[in-house]
C-alpha cells in the first residue's frame, strides 16, 4: 500500500492508474460488444453465450465463479478509474482558482473537454444497465437466463433505446479521448507510431460505439424481434 501511495502521489502516477484501469475497461467494452453480436444469430446462440459466461472455468471454478472474478476486477477498475479522475479534478480546480473572464478559443477536441461529464453519464448508464439486464429490477418482463428475450423486450421501449444510444455516443467520445490519451499518460510514445495513435483511438471508439448502438436500433427497426 505504501508503494501504491508513493507511486500515485504525483498526478502522473494517478493518470497511470487511470490509464491502466481504462485499459481493463476498454478490453471489457470491446469483448462485451463482440459477445453481444450473438444477438444477430438468434435466441439460441445468445442464450448459450450467457450460459457459457456463467459456467466459464468449470469445473475448476464453481458456477458464476469466473464471472464474479471478472466482476470484481471490473469493479476495482471502475473504482480506481473514478478515484483517480476525482483526485486530478480536485487538483486541477485548485490549480486554476481564477478563470479567464473571456475565453472563446479552444484548441482541444470536444471529446477531451467532455471526459468528466461523459464519464458521469457512463456511470449512470452502467448502473441503469445493471438494473436493466443483470438484475432485471427496472426491466418490464425480465426472465433469468433468457438473454435474447430480455434484450428484445428491453429495447422495444423506445425511450430506453434512446437512452442507450445517447449513452453509447458518450462512451464513444470517452473511448476516443481515453484510448489516445492512455498512450500519452503511460509514455507510450515514439515518433514512428505516434501518428497511428489517433487512428487507433478513432477506430476503437467507432467499432465499439457502432456495434453497441446497432443492438437497440436492430430491435426498434424490427431487424431483430
Amino acid at each position: 500500500m505504501a508503494w501504491f501511495t508513493d507511486f500515485s502521489k504525483a498526478a502522473i502516477g494517478k493518470k497511470a492508474v487511470m490509464a491502466v484501469s481504462g485499459i481493463i475497461l476498454f478490453g471489457f467494452v470491446l469483448v462485451h460488444m463482440i459477445g453481444n453480436l450473438h444477438l444477430y444469430e438468434g435466441p439460441g446462440h445468445l442464450d448459450e453465450y450467457g450460459q457459457f459466461l456463467r459456467h466459464m472455468g468449470a469445473p475448476a471454478l464453481p458456477p458464476n465463479g469466473a464471472l464474479w472474478i471478472a466482476r470484481l476486477v471490473l469493479l476495482s477498475a471502475v473504482v480506481l478509474h473514478i478515484w483517480s479522475a476525482w483526485q486530478v479534478t480536485l487538483m486541477n480546480r485548485a490549480a486554476r482558482p481564477t478563470d479567464y473572464t473571456y475565453r472563446p478559443q479552444v484548441h482541444t477536441t470536444y471529446a477531451a473537454r467532455t471526459m468528466r461529464w461523459g464519464g458521469a453519464i457512463i456511470l449512470l448508464f452502467v448502473i441503469y444497465h445493471l438494473l436493466h439486464f443483470t438484475t432485471g429490477t427496472v426491466h418490464p418482463s425480465f426472465e433469468e437466463g433468457a438473454v435474447y428475450h430480455n434484450v428484445v423486450a428491453g429495447f422495444s421501449v423506445w425511450w430506453v433505446s434512446l437512452f442507450y444510444i445517447v449513452a453509447q455516443l458518450a462512451l464513444g467520445l470517452h473511448l476516443y479521448h481515453g484510448v489516445w490519451s492512455l498512450f500519452q499518460s503511460l509514455g507510450w510514445s515514439h515518433p514512428r507510431f505516434n501518428l497511428w495513435r489517433n487512428g487507433l483511438a478513432q477506430a476503437f471508439a467507432w467499432i465499439v460505439t457502432l456495434g453497441n448502438i446497432s443492438f437497440p436500433i436492430a430491435v426498434l427497426t424490427g431487424l431483430v424481434r
Binding site: 498526478a11 482541444t108 477531451a112 471526459m115 500519452q184
Partner: peptide, 25 residues
Amino acid sequence: GSCSNFAECEAVCPKGISIDNIARM
C-alpha cells in the same frame, strides 16, 4: 494542475514544442 492530454499547450507554444515530450517525461 495535472495533464488531461488536451494538447492546448502545444497549440499555443511559441516554439511549437510537441506533447510527445510529455509522454517521454
